[in-house]
Design a protein around this nucleic acid. Structure first.
Lengths: 237, 237
DNA sequence: CCAATAGTGTCTATCAGACAGTATCGA
DNA sequence: TCGATACTGTCTGATAGACACTATTGG
């Protein structure tokens, strides 16, 4: 830092990070929301997030918030994907002061019990289908919509679906990731062919997992080393 | 704003916008750079940009800077595309103080004479192929690389190429947009077929433009109403 | 046995790559 | 006439959609 430049010469901005963390549940795709305990928007649901500290990068702040709220991303819970989404900088998006928010999207293979922050009344994994019935705080509805569309489109041309599927999965489970995220049904045979024909998407193990709903045991796979799908998986609609 | 919240309670951040403006020239794809006249990085080239004002949104600041540096985006020069790219928030990316920069990418059909800002020594349209020989100021090399990749990939699945081609263009000129941006050669016949088979990509006019390098006059097109290419144009490599 | 899923095979439509061939301009 | 480009047509290979079929498990 250079003492010639007085920070007070510049307009006072606060910078925050807000994170849309997605994970799969029996109810389909869910997102982690916190119930605000303080004004503004007390009682309303919001995305987890917080202020960026003066001595941490914006990305580091996102990882820190993710860890604080969920334990996700700590060494004990690997396999999480976090990526920057977009920055929301409308003048009056926060009624308190000028706040610019850098939004992130995260994918988790698990749904750890959330640990709400000090100014939160609670935290829960909410099915994305149920969120639009709530009126989220700030501009978080817009952020969530952008995050959803980002995740949905990234499943088309990346192997990120494996990040939602966990360390080991069957092809049926991987298909369920796509179907829950895209809210569609895919042809089983064509999905298998596509996944297995894409180098680096999945890596076979020798295990088989017995079915609990009928059918023969399914082959178990792990995430492959590839990151892109070329040509992409096609999203119907 | 709520007087209960004192901005000084929060870490002092400055927020800037930096813009990678692309346009086509005879030398291929070019980007607008300014030569810095003041420290830090005096004499080095940088992306145009500036501080976000306290009473303007981040997006508005990007439009304002674009207008101030180029006249682009003003009512007189329509047809410009501007989109947010990513936010760069490393702690020490600016040696003066903590600055978070929201980066934008812009596409212009023209190359207006740039009007450098007060603290700039000059401004020029530089071929992107020549930029990597320069050492850009701050983390602008990283921003430019991200902008280039964004533009290149967006030509695959959007009709944005028409934003670089100008109001009226021939299919040969549109192909040159792709070839300059992607730095490849495309099969002429297949390119034509793809463009004409994509609804809403181009709209035929009745004009023909006489060739200045031989060959029959080419049909003149305008941008269509569509914004996406589905299936996308395939980028070789 | 039955329901449910795993896994395989096949036909077809679509589309991109490659390339040939004709037509039309300016120099 | 020649070089260069506009424009059209055709063959082929890759791939997705649709769907039929068999096999294997638990209840």
């Amino acid at each position: 830092m250079n003492a010639t430049y007085d920070p007070r010469d510049f307009p006072p901005f606060a910078v925050t990070v807000d994170i849309a963390v997605f994970a799969l549940g029996d109810e389909g795709l869910t997102v982690l929301l916190v119930e605000r305990g303080v004004e503004p928007f007390a009682g309303r649901w919001a995305l987890p997030g917080g202020f960026v500290g003066p001595d941490e990068s914006v990305d580091d702040a996102a990882w820190r918030e993710l860890r604080e709220e969920t334990g996700i991303g700590a060494d004990e819970i690997p396999g999480v994907h976090l990526e920057q989404l977009a920055t929301f900088g409308a003048v009056d998006r926060d009624p308190r002061m000028r706040v610019v928010s850098v939004a992130y999207a995260a994918l988790s293979p698990h749904r750890p019990e959330p640990t709400p922050g000090t100014d939160a009344a609670g935290a829960s994994w909410i099915p994305v289908a149920d969120v639009k019935a709530k009126r989220l705080a700030f501009d978080h509805a817009e952020i969530l919509a952008a995050a959803l569309e980002r995740v949905r489109s990234k499943l088309e041309y990346t192997t990120l679906a494996t990040r939602l599927a966990g360390a080991e999965f069957t092809l049926g489970e991987l298909q369920q990731v796509y179907e829950a995220t895209w809210d569609t049904n895919l042809e089983r045979a064509n999905f298998r062919r596509k996944v297995l024909a894409t180098p680096g998407f999945v890596k076979p193990t020798r295990k088989r997992r017995p079915s609990h709903v009928g059918g023969p045991p399914a082959a178990v796979y792990r995430a492959g080393s590839g990151e892109t799908l070329d040509p992409p998986m096609i999203r119907p609609g």
